[in-house]
């Protein structure tokens, strides 16, 4: 895990939900950009302080999914998986929650250390929509903070929630997504095998990807000669890479 002296926050979300606006509101002028190694995707990083703790925030590309259908999705997914952010914020559009919650559920399968930022609350209100963020938080098992990033509304509450989740003051408890019984049986077997091999990842998430034969994730774990998966833990990038190179 990242030392809490230097906690990292990943900002994810569907395209056009106001991630960069949230990022700017959180970090002000304390920003710089850099390239994710091997990919032509530019990431912006910045900092904010809360309760004497300096958080590094990374603005990830907007995606509908984390299934690595595109370089953007792969970068967003790999960051959340391998940089082990202390908190992942999912910025969602309050005017079309239904579509946005797909990504929230995908993130929650990877990490429970998640905060949902329900942005564009002003737009929702204008459309006559009422979003019950308390109920949403209860259903999801993680904080859901109503925000209007463009005017800075809700940003203090968001920082506080990030701090509380990072420090464990708030214990999140996402409800696991249950699959068909035959898949659950396979998952139980795989999860048991995988737990000791990849201690830093959710074994359930990894088992799901193995069942799907997700090549993009297998590549990260297979040793160079690609003949054995016995050294899963040795190949986990986060065991060799602590903090992304663009962070100094």
């Amino acid at each position: 895990m990242n030392n809490l002296k230097h906690p990292i926050v990943a900002l994810s979300g569907n395209p056009n939900t106001g991630k960069s606006t949230v990022f700017n509101a959180l970090t002000g002028l304390n920003q710089h950009t850099g390239n994710w190694p091997g990919k032509t995707v530019t990431l912006a990083a910045g900092t904010f302080a809360w309760q004497n703790t300096t958080f590094t925030v990374v603005d990830l590309p907007g995606t509908y999914s984390l299934f690595a259908n595109s370089p953007d999705e792969e970068v967003a997914r790999d960051f959340i998986l391998f940089e082990l952010p202390d908190v992942t914020v999912v910025v969602v559009d309050a005017t079309c929650l239904e579509r946005n919650l797909n990504l929230v559920l995908q993130v929650l399968e990877i990490t429970p250390k998640t905060v949902v930022c329900v942005n564009l609350m002003d737009e929702a209100q204008r459309q006559g929509l009422v979003v019950d963020t308390d109920k949403l938080a209860t259903e999801l098992g993680v904080p859901a903070i109503p925000c209007v990033a463009r005017s800075g509304k809700g940003l203090a509450a968001l920082k506080k929630a990030i701090f509380n989740v990072a420090t464990g003051r708030i214990a999140t408890s996402p409800r696991p997504i249950r699959y068909d019984p035959n898949i659950e049986i396979a998952l139980a077997v795989l999860t048991k095998e995988l737990s000791p091999l990849a201690p830093l990842l959710s074994p359930r998430w990894l088992a799901l990807r193995l069942l799907e034969q997700d090549e993009s994730i297998l590549q990260h774990f297979l040793p160079e000669d690609k003949t054995s998966t016995s050294s899963l833990v040795m190949q986990h990038p986060s065991t060799t890479k602590k903090v992304a190179p663009w962070f100094s």
Binding site: Y64, S65, F67, N69, E98, R99, N102
Partner: peptide, 10 residues
């Protein structure tokens, strides 16, 4: 992958 993407779009 196309099916995956369509499902992800809801």
């Amino acid at each position: 992958p196309v099916k995956r993407r369509l499902l992800d779009l809801g």
